[in-house]
Measured scan of single mutants.
Amino acid sequence: MAAGGDHGSPDSYRSPLASRYASPEMCFVFSDRYKFRTWRQLWLWLAEAEQTLGLPITDEQIQEMKSNLENIDFKMAAEEEKRLRHDVMAHVHTFGHCCPKAAGIIHLGATSCYVGDNTDLIILRNALDLLLPKLARVISRLADFAKERASLPTLGFTHFQPAQLTTVGKRCCLWIQDLCMDLQNLKRVRDDLRFRGVKGTTGTQASFLQLFEGDDHKVEQLDKMVTEKAGFKRAFIITGQTYTRKVDIEVLSVLASLGASVHKICTDIRLLANLKEMEEPFEKQQIGSSAMPYKRNPMRSERCCSLARHLMTLVMDPLQTASVQWFERTLDDSANRRICLAEAFLTADTILNTLQNISEGLVVYPKVIERRIRQELPFMATENIIMAMVKAGGSRQDCHEKIRVLSQQAASVVKQEGGDNDLIERIQVDAYFSPIHSQLDHLLDPSSFTGRASQQVQRFLEEEVYPLLKPYESVMKVKAELCL
Rank of each mutant, 00 (worst) to 15 (best):
M387W: 03
A150M: 09
L331S: 01
T38K: 07
I373N: 06
C340E: 03
Y365F: 11
L271M: 07
E148S: 12
L331V: 09
G5P: 07
Y13G: 10
G203I: 00
A206S: 06
L443R: 04
L135R: 02
C180K: 06
D129I: 14
T450N: 04
S448R: 15
F460R: 03
L108Y: 10
T201G: 08
W39F: 14
L132A: 14
S474W: 15
R20D: 00
R37K: 14
T244S: 14
S447Q: 13
S395Q: 15
D317R: 02
G240H: 08
P24C: 10
L209E: 13
D117V: 01
L482K: 06
K402G: 05
A206L: 09
T227P: 06
G231Q: 10
L152I: 10
G419N: 12
K82W: 12
G451I: 05
D73Y: 08
Q325W: 04
N421E: 06
A431T: 15
S334P: 01
G361W: 07
K264A: 08
E425F: 13
S207F: 06
R426E: 07
I351P: 02
H263D: 00
H442F: 14
L155S: 01
Q41R: 14
A77V: 14
S334N: 12
I57L: 07
A110N: 00
Y34H: 11
G200N: 04
G419P: 02
G259D: 00
C399D: 06
F327H: 08
R171S: 00
N357H: 09
V219E: 00
A47C: 06
G394W: 08
A235R: 09
G4W: 15
Q356L: 11
N274D: 10
T52I: 10
I106N: 03
A342W: 10
V219K: 04
D144L: 15
L121N: 09
K284Q: 13
S253K: 04
Y466T: 15
L142I: 09
V115C: 09
G419H: 12
N353H: 05
A342V: 15
T94H: 12
D192P: 02
Q397W: 02
P366W: 06
I122R: 01
H97W: 13
C173E: 02
C172R: 03
D317N: 11
L469W: 06
V262H: 02
R33C: 15
R309C: 14
H91L: 08
L132M: 12
M387E: 00
N68M: 11
D333M: 01
A260L: 04
L307E: 03
F160G: 07
M26K: 00
E370R: 11
Y13D: 05
N353I: 12
T267A: 11
R125D: 06
E25L: 09
L352E: 05
L121Y: 03
T202G: 13
I369Y: 03
R234Y: 11
D32V: 13
A411G: 14
E70R: 14
I106D: 00
S67A: 12
T52F: 07
A480V: 14
L440Q: 08
L124D: 11
L482G: 07
N421A: 09
R404N: 10
G214L: 10
S454C: 13
Y21Q: 01
T94K: 07
S261R: 02
K218G: 10
L128A: 10
S301G: 13
Y114H: 03
A2E: 09
R196C: 13
K35V: 08
L135A: 09
I139W: 01
L377A: 03
S112N: 04
M292E: 04
T330R: 03
I358H: 03
R83I: 12
S438L: 09
W326T: 05
T242D: 07
M278W: 08
S140Y: 15
L406C: 10
V254T: 12
I62D: 01
D422H: 11
S112T: 01
P467L: 11
